[in-house]
Design a protein around this nucleic acid. Structure first.
Length: 843
DNA sequence: AACTTTGGCGAGCGGG
DNA sequence: CCCGCTCGCCAA
């Protein structure tokens, strides 16, 4: 490799990557000329104990000094740093039943990765890696499960600015041929530091590693940052999807189409359309082989254009640089990057954190209580609904109650016998101990109200709140920087990314405190955060009630209220911030207050269906009046879901848009329903209209059918049945893969499900209407017009004994509306006797 | 390897 | 017909 190894002197460079190799840490940077520079530093396997342990255990010093696994120790502030021969020894000594634990000595950070150790102790800064996009085409005659045996037929590498596009194609089917191809690939890759591939972790990177071994090439893979673009896109870009349409498929082609627009013409995706293609194309040689390379290059370039548009890899880099983490796939994991910053800050303060221990299996894990979701007190079409929400609720709570592991005090339990109807009153005896604040954690049952609080010391500032404050400060710094530059200019774009990155960081702090995969996990702490949120929102709703503000719904950090005008509601929000929160927080012993409620928006019309399901038309949003071009806000409804049939989304969206536009005559919607019904039962249907797509949340073998009473195995979920069939064909049906399928015939027992790739137009139209398309809209209409009978349109399938259905699907049997077909659940109000039951003209 | 959390809805299945 | 269960997706 054309790199040079140096002994470091002078100013420390920023590093593009580092990895642990045997007894060394290898650090990579690039010099002024862009040449790769490697530095070598000795690896250290360290753990920490409190210095006080030496006083308590006089024998400790000699135990440490005589251990053959300990190479040294030294004092560092309040801690002793112990250096181990092997990482495994450091971890073993910190085990829950290890020597230290038996002697009541806490061991800190024993499991910290050696690279992280080095970054933390040596204050390593992260440099921007040179990025490229990679795609491979492999021999598709082998099933996905045998990807390690797949010969690489060609590769394409595109530089991040798109000015350099290189490809390689297999010259001959032999080990030597593939070795030459791989050599060519790595000759190209060494210009870069970060290699991005769509689905790379599942496919391309695995194939490369396997083929290097197969042809006998030794390459130090850890020298690159291997970044799977797909999960990074999902994590940093997904919330931008408006409808479920974009969530149907995460394939490169689909995402490119969604992100780059309809003019992005997708080339035929190899291996997906037309069955086995790649090997045949390569084998054919000539123009066909050239086409294979063209496809391959086009995919690599799609990635580049997706990044140009979304910037999610740039955001990953901004997060990584802010948290001293390298921007590979794992660097996108909140647990990883928050830990990076936590240890960084801890080192500044002479603090160390608990050793992380592998958690028990999920069945044994104790959950903690989360947010509160209010049952809507009103459903249907509502007017003038004001929405307030807490700014960054959980970080604000962490700051306000100074919630951190090291500030956590004793649990503080207070039981109070009082009737439930008084449960909302302050306990009256909650004298919080001096110097502490009490996290509200209230359980109310029939007669007992339990304030099962955790106390937190107000001083000094905890490291978790400090981290939140720093991230918030940095976000606002970059927001200010942004304003100094013309929108869209390079400096503006950079500031925008960094602001976005710090927002991601702020929002990740709570999740990490609540994650068992984090060394900072603490159930009591995490529950204190969520329950403080419950308390705040409930206090807000109560306070509103005394001011004629009727809150009809709320979820976690928001309230939806009616009964007053904009001015009064704005006044209320102001009063909450100026008066209510300062007062009640003081009562809980808080000396800080980062809680802030904002009047976010108001809805002109709101169609409220239930918890987490509504659609609204804005009156104003964040101070700006809505206009005709303002899009409706839709939450939770099928329209937003990527797993339902497209027709279900379309029909529901049509009806919602009409409702929000002020169309409020039921008869009008009867016509819409009948038109859709006709289309589903008689019209042209394409696969995309009726396709369902569900992900596999675990590997196929983990779906174990229950045994029925009769001793038979019960049915697996439809997408799993289809996935098993696809597995037989050698398709990739691993964990996380979305299975696309449709219902061929639901009248049989069991129903027949078919993979999307087997589409022959033979879809069960009755099932499509009754189960996939109409219910989503039925629920909207039944909520909007509760006195109207909407269930009568639901039945479509002719009764088995109902004579001979032939010709048109609109036979008498299909149109008959048996009384029993009415779904009582959606007929909210009693039907008016003899009233309009919608015997529309089509009947 | 794949893991931020809990709350909640609806589809599908099976049993009473 | 209702209920309880699992599953996957979505809200926050």
């Amino acid at each position: 490799m054309r790199s040079r190894s140096v002994v470091r002197t002078g100013t420390r460079p920023k590093y593009i990557n580092a990895f642990w190799a045997g007894s060394n840490i290898i650090l990579l940077s690039r010099d002024e000329g862009g040449e790769l520079v490697r530095e070598i530093a000795p690896v250290e396997h360290a753990s920490f104990i409190r210095k006080a342990a030496f006083d308590k255990h006089p024998e400790l010093r000699s135990v440490i000094e005589s251990s053959r696994y300990i190479t040294g120790w030294r004092e560092e502030g309040e801690f002793i740093r112990i250096q181990w021969t092997l990482r495994e020894k450091a971890i073993a000594a910190a085990e829950k039943d290890g020597w230290f634990a038996q002697h009541g000595i806490d061991v800190f950070e024993a499991d910290v990765d050696p690279v992280r150790r080095y970054i933390t102790d040596n204050r390593i800064e992260i440099a921007r890696p040179l990025r490229c996009y990679l795609d491979l085409e492999t021999d598709d005659r082998l099933p996905f499960s045998q990807l390690t045996q797949m010969t690489i037929l060609c590769w394409a590498v595109v530089s991040e600015d798109g000015t350099r596009k290189m490809t390689g194609v297999l010259s001959e089917e032999s080990t030597e041929g593939e070795r030459t191809l791989l050599k060519g690939l790595f000759e190209e890759l060494r210009r870069y530091d970060q290699v991005c591939a769509w689905n790379g972790d599942r496919f391309d990177f695995k194939v490369i590693a396997a083929r290097l071994a197969a042809v006998g090439l030794a390459v130090e893979m850890r020298r690159w940052l291997w970044t799977d673009h797909l999960p990074v896109f999902e994590r940093f870009n997904m919330n931008s999807a408006e409808s479920g349409e974009e969530k149907q498929s995460m394939s490169l082609g689909s995402v490119a189409a969604a992100v780059l627009g309809p003019d992005e013409k997708k080339l035929v995706k190899l291996g997906e359309v037309g069955g086995k293609r790649t090997y045949a194309m390569w084998k054919a040689g000539g123009e066909e082989r050239d086409n294979l390379v063209v496809y391959c290059l086009d995919d690599a370039d799609k990635e580049r254009r997706i990044e140009d548009k979304t910037g999610c890899l740039e955001t990953l880099f901004a997060v990584a640089q802010a948290t001293h983490t390298f921007p590979d796939t794992r660097g996108a994991d909140p647990v990883k990057f928050v830990e990076g910053y936590l240890l960084w800050m801890g080192a500044e303060r002479g603090m160390h954190f608990p050793t992380w221990h592998p958690p028990p299996p999920s069945e044994e894990r104790e959950k903690y209580r989360g947010a509160w979701v209010m049952e809507p007190t009103r459903t249907g079409i509502l007017r003038d609904v004001h929405v307030a929400d807490f700014a960054r609720l959980y970080p604000s709570i962490i700051i306000t109650w100074n919630m951190s592991l090291e500030t956590m005090g004793e649990p503080w339990s207070l039981e109070k016998r009082q009737p439930t109807y008084l449960a909302h009153l302050p306990s009256g005896t909650n004298e919080v101990p001096v110097g502490y604040c009490a996290a509200p954690n209230i359980t109310v049952d029939e007669i007992l109200t339990v304030y099962d609080s955790v106390l937190f010391r107000n001083e000094p500032e905890g490291i978790l709140p400090a981290m939140c404050i720093e991230f918030i400060r940095m976000r606002s710094y970059w927001d200010d920087e942004k304003k100094k530059h013309p929108p869209g200019s390079p400096l503006w774009v950079d500031a925008n990314r960094r602001a976005a990155a710090f927002k991601i960081c702020v929002n990740s702090v709570y999740g990490v405190a609540g994650s068992i995969w984090s060394r900072f996990f603490n159930k009591q702490l995490a529950e204190s955060v969520t329950q403080a949120g419950v308390w705040l929102i409930q206090k807000t709703i109560e306070a509103g009630e005394t001011r004629r503000i009727r809150t009809i719904y709320g979820d976690t950090d928001s309230t939806f209220s009616m009964g007053v005008g904009e001015t009064e509601f704005a006044e209320f929000v102001k009063w909450c911030n100026a008066d209510l929160y300062p007062r009640i927080l003081k009562e809980r012993g808080c000396t800080r207050n980062a809680i802030s409620l904002a009047y976010e928006k108001a809805f002109d019309f709101l169609v409220m269906l239930g918890k987490k399901r509504y659609a609204g038309k804005y009156l104003h949003y964040k101070g700006k009046r809505a206009d005709a071009s303002s899009k409706p806000e839709i939450k939770g409804l099928e329209f937003k879901r990527g797993d339902v049939a497209r027709l279900a989304r379309q029909m529901q969206s049509d009806v919602i848009n009409l409702l929000l536009a002020g169309k409020h005559e039921p008869q009008f919607y009867e016509d819409v329903v009948m038109a859709y019904r006709k289309r589903v039962l008689e019209g042209q249907l394409e696969l995309a209209d009726v396709k369902l797509a569900k992900g596999l949340s675990k590997s196929l073998r983990e779906y174990i059918p229950k045994i029925k009473k009769d001793g038979e195995a019960s049915a697996l979920p439809p997408h799993v049945i289809v996935a098993k069939e696809l597995a037989k064909r050698g398709r990739d049906v691993g964990q996380g893969i979305r299975i696309e399928y449709y219902v061929r015939d639901a009248s049989t027992d069991p129903p027949i499900y078919a993979a999307a790739e087997d589409w022959k137009g033979d879809v069960d139209r009755y099932h499509v209407w009754e189960n996939q398309v109409y219910p989503a809209t039925l629920r909207v209409l039944a909520t909007a017009f509760p006195r109207h009978d909407w269930a009568k349109f639901e039945r479509a399938r002719p009764k088995k004994d109902g004579g001979t259905a032939s010709g048109t699907l609109f036979t008498k049997a299909a149109l008959a509306v048996p009384v029993g077909a009415r779904d009582k659940r959606v007929v909210v109000a009693a039907k008016k006797p003899g009233g309009s039951t919608g015997q529309g003209s089509l009947f």
